[in-house]
């Protein structure tokens, strides 16, 4: 095998569309997992909120977090 083929093979392994897509999916999945943890945290905190202002903020955080998860899921299924 000549040098060109070896470097092409290495480049191929590193740069194929498939590898890039897999990397991207892994990143999104990691992000979704992080957001799911946040969602659970907010859900746990809402019943413990001391003031209405705090409850409202937590609910808002929950809504945004769920919207972000939905976007991530959508990107993953594409």
């Amino acid at each position: 095998m000549n040098l060109g083929k070896i470097t092409d093979l290495l480049q191929g392994l590193l740069d194929t569309k498939h590898a890039r897509a897999a990397k991207r999916d892994a990143e999104i999945q990691e992000l979704i997992d992080k957001l799911l943890k946040k969602e659970a945290k907010y859900l746990g905190k809402i019943p413990l909120a001391a003031t209405e202002k705090e409850t409202k903020k937590l609910k808002r955080q929950l809504v945004v977090c769920r919207a972000q998860i939905a976007k991530g899921m959508e990107a993953l299924s594409d």
């Binding site: 991207r24 990143e27 999104i28 992000l31 945004v64 972000q68 998860i69 976007k71 991530g72 990107a75």
Partner: peptide
């Protein structure tokens, strides 16, 4: 890395 986090931005 490529901007993966941007995907969930609203």
């Amino acid at each position: 890395l490529p901007d993966g986090s941007g995907i969930v931005e609203l």
